[in-house]
Computed example of a mutant assay.
Amino acid sequence: MLTSILYSNCRKIKYPLLGTFRFLPNSSGKDVLSKVGIRNGSNYANRRKHIDLSVESKYLQLTLPSVMDEIIDEQLVYHRHQPNLKERYRNLLNHVLNLVDLYLSVPLFFIRSYREFENPALQIDENLKKAAILAWSIKLAEVSMIIDDDIIDKSNVRYLRPTWYKQPDVGVECAICDSSFLLSGGHILLLNHFRTHPQFSNILKEYYVNYSTCMVALCIDSKKYKVQELKLDFAKAYPITIICVICAMYFTNIVDPFIHVTAKEFLKELARYVQIEDDVKCVFNTNSEKDCTDVAEGKNSWLAIQAYERGSREQRFVLENHYGKSDNDSQIKIYQLYKELRLDDQFEVFKEDFYESMFERIQSLPKELPKQLFFDLLDYGLSGRIQS
């Protein structure tokens, strides 16, 4: 990373919603990124790389079998004479819910948020199980969106295995129906277990606002744009960070509008980072857990936008003529261009700057928002573990 002396000589480039990036001028006058290691003693260097979510994971696993039974029984009420359907939908629920903790960050952090906001005396076994059921309802909405996203993106891999619509005997048509089954399943859990909760209407509204926000973003993202017209819509990532904390606040009867707005602003920024990281990891990490279709589909990608901003006239010509094309030659040219521009290094600079900024922001949060929860979210997010 850049030392304090180098910082004073850097040109700062601002990008809307992305923060500030620092570049050093070289002898030719062209700005080049300088990467000289993480600043010693920085908050980023001292961040925690392991967050213990074992209690949260325990309650998710304890409640999963009964949650699956309830969703199947409630939604197959008129199809009980077809026992094969019960097995089919159990396979669906196992595919999208029975996951390792790496892919359960949203429900895990809902329970963690509940534990931070709730009076310790009320954190009894029964209430923690209720929190886990609400966490599963949130996860059901998330996986509903994921199935739709995979279909739209024509993705073949998710969680290091074939996507749901690519499973044998599923296909696009059934997968679309299955997506609705999951969304309604989450709603049924909310109705069955929380309809008498004082904040039920707010919880339900948050459930659907996050869902509809993501679906609108998917619609926008599905359009074809010229590379010079690309503009990131971060709303696609908002459900990954916002709903788990906001619903936990409602669940513990925290309704102060100012506290909610303050939390949402922080969580929106974290979601933006998560989306940027996903764009970068998709291209530069060969062990990505899902398909990278951004280049072939011409998606609104942080990398493409940065490449067009930073590229020379010749490099922009390559982008204009090859970005959004699915042939191997075009994709190779784009990947080579990203490497020429050292966009992976640029992201590492941004990553540390982002962490430092968010770390300072947590220090000034109101007392009603537990600082440790937001440090946990930040550390977990920048360890690459907030995933969908």
Rank of each mutant, 00 (worst) to 15 (best):
A135S: 08
G311N: 04
P107M: 08
H260W: 04
I334A: 04
F258Y: 15
C219Q: 14
V283F: 02
S57G: 11
E74V: 14
L92P: 05
A248V: 04
V280S: 02
L102H: 12
R361F: 08
I176D: 10
N26H: 12
E74F: 12
K299T: 02
L102M: 13
I152K: 04
S357F: 15
H197L: 10
I5A: 15
L190G: 00
D291T: 06
N202L: 07
S42W: 07
P366W: 08
C292V: 03
L183A: 13
G186N: 06
S57F: 10
N91K: 14
F266W: 05
G185S: 08
Y207L: 03
A45N: 12
N287M: 11
L230D: 00
E356Y: 07
M249D: 01
V100I: 13
S201M: 11
R88D: 03
N91W: 10
R310L: 10
S364L: 15
G298N: 00
Y15D: 03
I362N: 00
K351R: 13
G324E: 08
C174W: 13
N300M: 10
H50D: 11
A248G: 04
D52Q: 02
P162N: 03
P162W: 00
G171I: 07
I146H: 00
D233W: 05
C214E: 09
Y7Q: 15
D344V: 08
I362D: 04
D31S: 12
S54I: 13
S388D: 12
L343P: 03
D69T: 09
Y207C: 06
P198M: 03
I386S: 00
K166Y: 09
D329V: 15
L270W: 00
L365H: 00
V274P: 01
S28L: 08
D150M: 08
D221R: 03
Y323P: 01
L377M: 02
S180Y: 15
Q346S: 14
L303D: 03
G41D: 00
Y225N: 09
R11H: 13
E142Q: 15
V96F: 04
F317W: 15
R272V: 08
K205M: 10
Y308Q: 05
I242C: 12
H322S: 13
L377C: 05
L97D: 04
I332A: 15
N91C: 14
K86N: 12
A217F: 03
Q275P: 03
S288E: 06
P25A: 12
L182H: 07
A248H: 02
K264S: 12
G381T: 04
P16M: 13
A237E: 09
L267M: 05
A307V: 02
G41M: 06
D149Q: 10
G298C: 07
I146K: 03
F354S: 05
E56G: 01
K154H: 13
T293I: 07
V280I: 10
N26Y: 11
S301M: 02
S312M: 12
R11C: 12
L183C: 11
L183P: 07
R195T: 12
L104R: 07
F194Q: 02
K58T: 09
N91P: 07
K325C: 11
S222A: 13
E142F: 06
Q315R: 05
F284Q: 06
T163S: 05
F359S: 08
Y355S: 02
